[in-house]
């Protein structure tokens, strides 16, 4: 998708690929039963890849990513197919997930709700409104699992350069959540963390430590991870490295 256009949210896909693959490929998000919320809509590119892999979207559709009038827009919208809620304005997804969890409870459904958040979003106050609410003793939401892609990247640079959101583990724990901190590129560690979701009455947050360019060596560290531009040489180098990794 990014190679065809020459630009796009490749960094987000690289930092979150293992996380999202684990959620959908590891049997955690049960399609048609559980709810899935993508809070940072810029990551929607990774959902398109997942949908194509699951046979829900055609490869041809992927080629139109980000083009005028395409079904697959670069940032999530109400037209984004297949997922329950894909936000564009940051910081609102966790509240949406809380709404789904409350709705499931009213319907006496055992559906789980999964929300994907990014670390940069932790700067938005609404995330903490929702975090406080979800862990309150009256509506402790054990059926809710949140994963945070902690890639230390936002538009103006690293998150640590812009402000201080750490210590994330302590913050979420102090809000009443169960916290798992894992290497977000380690599929086994992610699987073990997601498996703990249903085990307790408190909601679970998985802080997945990642790198914005994944562990790609072919992309120079000076690249703008938030919005990658690929020239032909770089595109060839990236594809070669990815194909070698999958071989």
């Amino acid at each position: 998708m990014v190679a065809i256009q020459g630009f796009g949210y490749l960094g987000q896909a690289l930092s979150s690929a293992e996380i999202v693959a684990t959620m959908f490929g590891g049997g955690f998000v049960r399609r048609g039963q559980d709810k899935f919320v993508m809070s940072p809509g810029h990551y929607v590119i990774v959902l398109y890849a997942v949908a194509a892999e699951l046979g829900l979207l055609s490869r041809e559709e992927l080629a139109n990513y980000g083009k005028d009038a395409a079904l697959l827009e670069a940032i999530g919208t109400e037209r984004t197919p297949l997922f329950d809620l894909v936000c564009g304005s940051l910081g609102q997804g966790l509240s949406g997930a809380v709404g789904f969890a409350l709705s499931a409870r009213l319907k006496k459904s055992d559906a789980r709700t999964y929300a994907f958040l990014s670390d940069g979003e932790m700067e938005e106050g609404q995330v903490w409104e929702a975090a406080m609410f979800a862990a309150h003793n009256k509506h402790r939401m054990g059926q809710l699992t949140v994963v945070i892609d902690a890639n230390n990247s936002q538009v103006d640079g690293t998150v640590t350069f812009v402000t201080t959101i750490e210590p994330l583990v302590d913050k979420w724990r102090s809000f009443g959540w169960r916290v798992e901190e894992v290497d977000g590129h380690d599929v086994s560690a992610l699987q073990a963390a997601f498996a703990k979701g249903p085990a307790a009455p408190e909601p679970l947050v998985i802080i997945a430590r990642t790198e914005i360019l994944g562990r790609m060596k072919s992309i120079p560290s000076t690249a703008d991870g938030h919005f990658i531009k690929l020239d032909k040489d770089l595109e060839r180098a990236v594809l070669k490295e990815l194909e070698a990794a999958l071989a």
Binding site: K35, V37, D84, L85, Q92, S95, G96, A97, V98, G99, F100, L102, S103, A104, L106, K107, G125, Q126, E129, A130, M132, F133, H139
Partner: peptide, 25 residues
């Protein structure tokens, strides 16, 4: 059962409401 006090958190309340409505309420 169908009343919920979200507390002083209007942004959270509106986004919760939106998701509950998406789910049929």
């Amino acid at each position: 059962d169908r009343f919920l006090n979200v507390g002083m958190a209007e942004a959270n309340m509106i986004s919760i409401a939106g998701a509950m409505a998406r789910d049929g309420h």
